[in-house]
Design a binder for these strands. Sequence first.
DNA 1: CAATATGGACAGTAGAACTATCCGATAGTT
DNA 2: AACTATCGGATAGTTCTACTGTCCATATTG
Lengths: 212, 212
Amino acid sequence: MAELSSASGVPVATIKFYLRERLLPAGERTGPNQARYGEEHLRRLRLIRGLLEVGGLSVATARGVLDAVDSELPLTQSFGVAQRAVSATMDPADIDPQALARIDRLLAGWRVSGDNPGRLAAAYVLQTFDSVGQRDERDWFSRYAAAALLVAEADLDQVEARGSREDMAETVVIGTVLGDALFSGLRRAAQEHVSSLRYPVSPEPGRIPTLE
Amino acid sequence: MAELSSASGVPVATIKFYLRERLLPAGERTGPNQARYGEEHLRRLRLIRGLLEVGGLSVATARGVLDAVDSELPLTQSFGVAQRAVSATMDPADIDPQALARIDRLLAGWRVSGDNPGRLAAAYVLQTFDSVGQRDERDWFSRYAAAALLVAEADLDQVEARGSREDMAETVVIGTVLGDALFSGLRRAAQEHVSSLRYPVSPEPGRIPTLE
DNA sequence: CAATATGGACAGTAGAACTATCCGATAGTT
DNA sequence: AACTATCGGATAGTTCTACTGTCCATATTG
């Protein structure tokens, strides 16, 4: 266990915590108080850290996601589980039906089920957007939708490139969770790029001030 | 204050908490123990809830973002502040230089400063992606980058459509925070759409099982 | 004038993610 | 065989965050 800890950089106490929380399967026992951990434990541990740190999942949510990876669910359902895990479960009741209708108009032609968590989340964002007095200018929403479609095609391709069902399921989960983080990172970089093209930099480069 | 509470749906105790935390400016005093809150307080309160609920920001981070909106920062800096707020501040030290180099290759031709938080975050995602044994198949990364560029153009257009500097600053912040949530929602919807096109539904529609 | 409401200060709470301590058993050293 | 170090497991803290509840002096209202 100490070995696993030093190989991964995760404190022993934390590994014990993950074992207790059933995120990490127990090691192969070699005696009543000895266990061996292998390469797969290290990989799993890195996956856990990735889900928690990069994906920002809670321990409980990560457990659900990992269970889905380990289970024998058909692939289409893996997507559903992963999506539900990363989206805050929201009551359709407190979403403005009008916002939902706008999302549906935006997604016209898409085959999306009524309880797709992404659709509900998007509607909730629209509603919030309105309530703080913002307006959709120059097709902001629909350009987002178009970009989302591109990304979703890439996601499916990435999953299909894997061989076995388990690999695909793992890729679905990782892609769903890390994909969000990757995209928002790239988006911020792209914002700076586009911004610097449109507003050529002032002579003095100057550091962007940090928060606070 | 009770009025503000019922209009916004936020409990009075929570409003007091936000006042204490300097998220919400104090109301106009009409007496030693009476204050009036107006439309702008309601809007601000909704913005706060949006940042916390939809954007998932912490109270401390939201304060930083709101301070940026209120300040007289030039617009280009507002982007920086908003970006830094929504990205977990990460030490460039614990990012694999190799992952950074790959991101830079991916972003070839982009004008992005070295300390752009999105660039660092994306590199960190790449590193995690590798460490859990995933590979970039069929240009997954570069297709993400292309989509991010599209979205960033839309973001800039949305901001430019606003009139005053304050409106623009607010739009930057809202767009940065809510844009992430909007995109990931749309991405999930698009995933289901693309998936159902590629793998036509089985005769029995069947609900996707919920987590747990 | 009495009942209720108000805003502010401050203490308390619940949940999440660790972290520290203890313990009995065993592995390695001498 | 004796001794020390380490192991895995159980349990009890600890820290942080976002609220929530209570109290109180003052106002407003019927």
